[in-house]
Design a protein around this nucleic acid. Structure first.
Lengths: 123, 123
DNA sequence: ATTATTGTATTAAGCGCTTAATACAATAAT
DNA sequence: ATTATTGTATTAAGCGCTTAATACAATAAT
């Protein structure tokens, strides 16, 4: 699981997004413990402060729980996680339709283009 | 046509994206002249230097042409524009499928979710 | 001919992000 | 009891982005 970070926007926001995806997709399952801030920072080739910043915001969002001296873990509220996952998926679809709309494709056309591309990829 | 700019990433990159969309979707048609840098900067509530930076990069990309003292205009190469539009649409679909994939949905599922949401929106 | 408009360039300042270095308190591990 | 590990906090420096102020050359408009 690689951390590919772009330079065109703040690293800590990218860390937040990627961590969120890992949590929602089950890479870090509900209740599981995370590596230490320092370890995760090193793995992502990032300063510990920057990783700390991202993690503390994920805690604020309710996805992570901090145990002062024994590290952090993913929330045990599995329902919250699956709810967040559905919400994020919905948002992905909305942004996609919005983006296509700005290019001049309505919803029906966008759907057609997606299924068309999937057909192509089958071959 | 509003310029809603976020603070989470550089303004000039957002200007580039939004200008590109306006060009590809025909808001600024092929061959049409753009307002001056100063005017566009004021309209977007941005410093002229920032707008200049975005426009000069769009010129580098071949979408804009500069006429030293009589302003800028959109390239007259209509074919290039439509090609860029197709390319951008394709990229939108790919990113969407990629994002859904990271959340744990395969291509078929993603397509189903889109059509599902469109059904909902009809009601 | 004169004026206004065009893109362009330069300099200085402020700001947030990122890194680096360092330190501390709490507590799990030994 | 001692040690190692944990999250956390602070300070200073560098960097790119953004703004502001200003100026210049080229040329369209008058």
């Amino acid at each position: 699981m690689s951390w590919d970070l772009q330079t065109d926007r703040p690293i800590y926001t990218q860390l937040i997004e990627q961590m969120e995806i890992r949590i929602l997709s089950g890479v870090y399952p509900s209740g599981s413990r995370l590596p230490s801030v320092r370890d995760m920072a090193q793995e992502a080739a990032v300063n510990p402060n920057t990783m700390q910043r991202a993690l503390s915001q994920l805690e604020e969002a309710g996805l992570l729980v901090t145990h002062r001296t024994s590290g952090r873990s993913v929330t045990e509220d599995a329902q919250m996680i699956s709810q967040a996952k559905r919400k994020l998926a919905r948002e992905q679809i909305e942004t996609f339709l919005e983006n296509m709309g700005r290019l001049g494709f309505d919803h029906a056309e966008a759907l057609l283009l997606v299924s068309g591309m999937l057909e192509e990829m089958k071959k």
